[in-house]
Amino acid sequence: MIEGSLPPVEFWCELQCPDCRSALDDVRALRDRFGDALTITLRHFPLEKHKHAYPAAEAAEEAFAQGKGWEYVEAVLARVAELDQRGPELLVEVAAELGLDAEEVDLALIDGRHMLVVDADQAEGKAIGVTGTPTYVVAGKRLDGGKSQEGLLEEIVALLEG
């Protein structure tokens, strides 16, 4: 590791997961503390129990392609209960509200252009032992936030500064 550089943080997330919505507070705190020195990468781990999680991951990838991925992720997670009820309709609506090309988001859900990214994330997650969300991988260590997020922020900071 280069002197003064930080290891990246992988945030394994599912956009229909209420715990991931809560975990955004930790992600924001990390950004506030470390700024541009820290890279936080969203990794997709849609769970089968949430029927709109996979399309939400695809829509998020399109939002990243359009340059507003994190804003999109935060906006969708803020409306988890509504996503459960409205599904893809909400995903396109959120894109429009953020000034994204909503038609392109809708088309991405239809043509599956981001399926390979979501499938690859899911396969890698399973391979490294991710079983639920949120999960973080920091400096090669997996931290499971699905059971409890208590103390996770402090543990991530310790790994980053260690």
Rank of each mutant, 00 (worst) to 15 (best):
G132Y: 01
P88C: 09
V138C: 04
D121P: 11
V137M: 00
L116R: 10
D111L: 08
V92P: 01
G99R: 13
G99V: 11
A127F: 02
A139R: 04
V94P: 03
P134A: 06
A123M: 09
Y136T: 01
K126Q: 14
E103Y: 02
K141P: 00
G140W: 03
Q122S: 14
V137W: 00
V105I: 12
G87A: 10
E93Q: 15
E124I: 04
D121R: 07
D111A: 07
Y136H: 02
T133G: 04
T133F: 05
H114N: 12
G140T: 01
L100D: 05
A95Q: 06
D121C: 07
D111E: 14
E89A: 15
L100R: 05
G99Y: 13
A95S: 08
P134C: 06
V130K: 03
T135R: 01
E104H: 10
T131C: 02
G125T: 02
L107K: 14
G140Q: 04
K141D: 02
L116D: 14
A102P: 04
D106C: 08
R113I: 08
E93L: 11
E104C: 07
L98Y: 10
K141T: 11
A120S: 11
V118I: 13
R86G: 01
D106A: 15
K126T: 12
L90R: 04
L107P: 00
M115Q: 14
A102I: 08
E104M: 12
G99P: 12
E124M: 10
D101Q: 11
M115W: 01
A120E: 10
I128N: 01
E97F: 03
T133P: 03
A96H: 13
V138K: 00
L109H: 07
A102M: 09
R113C: 06
A102Y: 07
L109V: 11
A95H: 05
L91D: 04
G129R: 05
A123L: 09
E93F: 10
G112P: 05
G99M: 13
D106Q: 15
V105A: 07
L90A: 11
T131H: 08
T131K: 09
E103C: 06
V118R: 03
Q122V: 09
I110E: 14
L91I: 08
Q122T: 15
L100K: 03
G112S: 12
R113K: 13
V118S: 06
D106W: 09
P134F: 04
T135L: 00
I110T: 14
V117S: 08
A102W: 05
G140V: 00
E89C: 02
Q122D: 10
L107F: 07
G112M: 07
D119N: 15
A96L: 10
V94Y: 08
L90F: 07
A108L: 11
T133L: 05
